[in-house]
């Protein structure tokens, strides 16, 4: 009985006692989108989209994004149509009751690399490449963590034993990650002639993913500044009115 109770308690404590997975704290980076006045760097977002499309998209989906959302990183309607048209989208059933493939439209969600989680796992040695739509918001450390992870591959110290098919990454919990180093220097060719170092690609794709997680960020901060300004003035007036009302009370 005692054992049962303590087992139940352990369950109750729901794994908070789980292994203190050691990893290095990601160093803080400077991001154009941090701070009260922060906005996304459009060029970096578009380069980051290119990195996502040419590198990450082989395994990682961004299920919450539709092609039309790309208007938000500075693409024009025709660009978005062209980008969407490159994708093959399963649609249907048609009049014959069959599913068919067609070119993507702006209203379609981003094409996903695998039809379902099982397919994704079986193609990746059992590891599941997570959906990246919200990854910047869904990780402690946010953009700093993603950047650190992408640039944090290296040779394992002598005392760390790396399992087969895993890679050493100082910033990943447990320091072993199933994803092989994804970025290579000049792995993509930027149209704006920016040099595609690993750091540059990591920075760009992190900017893209930060936008994917918080597409409302710029609108939110802009509105926030106006609202704060209004409220500060209003509160000042309310204070003056309160003083006036209370002037006769001792």
């Amino acid at each position: 009985m005692r054992r049962l109770i303590s087992a139940a308690l352990l369950l109750l404590a729901f794994g908070t006692a789980a292994e203190a997975a050691e990893s290095t704290k990601p160093p803080a980076q400077h991001w154009s989108f941090s701070g009260m006045f922060g906005t996304f760097d459009r060029a970096a977002q578009q380069r980051g989209f290119q990195v996502y499309k040419e590198v990450c998209a082989a395994c990682h989906a961004v299920n919450l994004l539709s092609y039309r959302h790309l208007r938000g990183i500075g693409y024009q309607e025709d660009d978005v149509k062209a980008i969407a048209a490159q994708a093959k989208v399963m649609d249907g059933p048609n009049d014959a009751g069959e599913m068919f493939e067609r070119a993507g439209r702006p209203s379609d969600k981003f094409a996903r690399p695998f039809p379902n989680e099982n397919a994704a796992r079986s193609a990746n040695n059992g590891a599941y490449p997570v959906d990246l739509s919200l990854v910047v918001k869904a990780r402690v450390g946010g953009a700093n963590y993603i950047y650190a992870l992408l640039t944090g591959y290296g040779t394992a110290p002598a005392d760390v034993k790396i399992a087969d098919g895993m890679s050493y990454n100082a910033y990943f919990p447990g320091r072993q990650i199933a994803m092989p180093p994804p970025l290579n220097a000049d792995g993509v060719t930027y149209q704006d002639a920016t040099k595609a170092t690993i750091e540059q690609q990591a920075r760009d794709v992190t900017t893209f993913l930060a936008w994917a997680a918080e597409p409302e960020l710029e609108a939110r901060k802009q509105m926030g500044l106006k609202v704060l300004l209004f409220l500060i003035v209003l509160t000042g007036i309310l204070y003056a009115a309160k003083r006036k009302v209370w002037a006769g009370i001792h």
Binding site: F230, V233, I237, A241, K244
Partner: peptide, 18 residues
């Protein structure tokens, strides 16, 4: 009515409408 009361009420109304 004082200017200050009018301003307070006016601004509050504008805020609520916004």
């Amino acid at each position: 009515r004082d200017f200050i009361y009018l301003a307070a009420m006016g601004m509050s109304a504008v805020g609520a409408a916004a």
